[in-house]
């Protein structure tokens, strides 16, 4: 009896299973179909590298053939063909740019090289076929006269020393800009052993530049917007409240006194700074820089503080970050606080 029952159970199961299997199999096939469809819809033909190389090479061949025939064309037709080629190369460049993200390094280099060759062939053809336009000639002439003027108007020896960089055509151009500093830039440059004062009218809310000063006493009685001090030796520079930052580079044996929002000191040695700073001072590549609180004054400094927007009650002169000394537990050897006994109290 028990045995018979078992048999019945088995029998009914055998009938049911194929049904379920069939259903599952069908579902599986459908799911696979769906996946395939999704996959196909997501594949972007434009992103296959063979699509790119095919398109690129076809277009390249067209351009090359255009370039090769244009030598045989007469003067009227050649410009039009060259124009077309220019356009085609631009389009090809764009096509390339758009495809850059999915190309391999090798393909990138190849395509770039091809584009470069096409462009230079085009340039050659253009030089060969088209007469030079007048304005091009003129502009070139202007350039040469410009560069000739360079050595006269600038002090290039000092700059090449300070930048430590190679002297190329572009830096020569820049020196022309340097030469114009006197005209547009407010400040003092190239002075030796003098006492110099600039009044509020000259410097108020301007960006002031002091460079190449030796053994000078400088008084800036006003509130500049920023102050740059570069290449100064054995100078005493006092300045009214500076609204934003002061940038000091290559100073040695100097005494500075100024209020500012930020002070950035670079390549400076053996210098005392009487400082009022509302955010922070930093030193980089410096040694022997010593800080004291700002204590200089002149008639009208209160009004200049107002104008500069600096907070008179917030002075962080003791907070100095040394970019060459990141250890938090030991004090940087490059800067120190000037002992009270050595601080100056009178400035005149």
């Amino acid at each position: 009896m028990a045995c018979q029952l078992d048999g019945e159970v088995e029998l009914s199961a055998a009938v049911k299973i194929p049904d379920r299997l069939l259903k599952r199999d069908q579902e599986r096939v459908e799911a696979a179909e769906r996946r395939k469809e999704v996959q196909e819809s997501q594949t972007v033909t434009e992103e296959k590298s063979d699509y790119f190389s095919r398109g690129f090479n076809a277009e390249k061949a067209v351009i090359e053939s255009l370039l090769s025939i244009c030598s045989n064309l007469d003067r009227d037709k050649a410009p039009r063909v060259l124009e077309e080629v220019t356009l085609k190369i631009q389009q090809l460049q764009k096509f390339f740019n758009d495809s850059v993200v999915f190309l391999t390094q090798y393909e990138l280099r190849q395509a770039q090289a091809s584009l470069h060759t096409l462009q230079s062939t085009l340039d050659e053809k253009r030089d060969e076929l088209l007469p030079k336009k007048k304005f091009a000639f003129r502009s070139r002439k202007a350039e040469t006269s410009n560069s000739k003027a360079t050595p006269v108007s600038t002090d290039s020896s000092q700059h090449s020393k300070s930048d430590g960089g190679t002297q190329d055509a572009r830096s020569a151009e820049l020196h022309v800009a340097d030469g114009n500093i006197g005209a547009e830039q407010c400040g003092i440059t190239n002075v030796d052993s003098q006492t110099l004062t600039m009044s509020a009218e000259e410097i108020q809310q301007r960006d002031v530049l002091l460079t190449h000063l030796t053994n000078c006493k400088v008084r800036l009685l006003g509130s500049p917007s920023t102050l740059h001090i570069k290449h100064v030796r054995d100078c005493e520079i006092l300045c009214g409240p500076v609204s934003s930052s002061i940038f000091v580079d290559h100073a040695s044996g100097c005494t500075f006194a100024f209020p500012c929002q930020q002070l950035r000191t670079h390549n400076t040695t053996d210098t005392r700074v009487y400082l009022h700073v509302t955010s922070r001072a930093i030193v980089e590549d410096c040694s022997g820089v010593r800080f004291a609180p700002f204590n200089w004054s002149y008639p009208g400094i209160e009004a200049d503080f107002e104008l500069s927007g600096l907070d008179k009650d917030r002075n962080n002169w003791t907070l100095v970050d040394d970019f060459n000394w990141l250890a938090a537990d030991t004090h940087s050897p490059n800067w120190a606080i000037l002992p009270e006994s050595e601080r100056r109290s009178s400035w005149d």
Partner: peptide, 19 residues
């Protein structure tokens, strides 16, 4: 940046200087 400063170079001058 700093076009608010009176001595600032124009953007075209920067463009040229920076090539």
């Amino acid at each position: 940046n700093k076009q608010d400063l009176p001595g600032a170079l124009s953007k075209d001058a920067i463009r040229e200087a920076m090539a």
